[in-house]
């Protein structure tokens, strides 16, 4: 048994690792019904906010597992995490097979628009909200690689790249995202509160319930 935030996507949906797409879809549908606020089975255990958090996680789990490519990458990542945690938590090397899972995102790293020193000015002045590209710009300006930022902030590299790419559906629940953004902002000497606020506004408007799942 694990607290929710430590559960992997399979555990969140309550399905076996070898689940078929059909099973995944059914589990997702069921989970949606179950954690709708005010459902008979949940109202006495979870607050509306907790229900929403679970639903967000469920949606993410579904988005990843129902997409064959994403699922493959996720499985690999999971496998490598399990291996490292069974051998030793801290011996994880940068060359771990984490990589494939962020390929789709990191490929964007190459085609970055050229950036001058003033690239961050509009954000800091408040004329543009701090978004994923602001985080990326700040990191590149600081001359820090994702790996370095990961080891500084102790945030997994995949998540960092998702933050920058604003792949909201691949990120954990909003409370964690807010925490991540603050850590990143601190590491890159950005105004912490403002960055977090701007970023979370974007996150919230993109992940509003009812909106089509992002990133499929």
């Amino acid at each position: 048994m694990k607290p929710l935030h430590q559960q992997n996507y399979y555990e969140i949906l309550g399905i076996p690792r070898e689940a078929t797409p059909e099973q995944i879809r059914k589990a997702f549908e069921m989970s949606k019904q179950t954690f709708e606020s005010n459902s008979l089975a949940t109202y006495s255990l979870f607050s509306d906010e907790e229900n929403r958090e679970i639903l967000t996680l469920t949606q993410k789990a579904y988005n990843t597992l129902f997409n064959l490519n994403l699922r493959q990458a996720y499985d690999q990542q999971l496998q490598s995490e399990e291996q490292t945690s069974t051998t030793k938590r801290k011996t994880k090397t940068p060359a771990s097979p984490d990589k494939p899972s962020i390929q789709s995102v990191s490929s964007q790293e190459d085609d970055l628009p050229p950036m001058g020193k003033n690239a961050l000015q509009p954000y800091i002045a408040g004329t543009k909200p701090f978004d994923g590209s602001a985080l990326k710009a700040a990191r590149l300006l600081a001359g820090i690689s994702l790996d370095e930022l990961a080891s500084q902030t102790k945030i997994r590299k995949t998540y960092l790249s998702y933050l920058e790419a604003e792949s909201f559906s691949s990120l954990p629940a909003s409370v964690y995202v807010r925490g991540f953004v603050k850590l990143v902002a601190a590491a890159l000497s950005l105004p912490i509160e403002q960055t977090a606020q701007d970023y979370m506004n974007r996150y919230a408007s993109a992940t509003q319930p009812g909106q089509a799942p992002h990133g499929i």
Partner: peptide, 10 residues
Amino acid sequence: FAMQAACQKY
């Protein structure tokens, strides 16, 4: 089934 899922989560 919903209670099952709720118990698992809670």
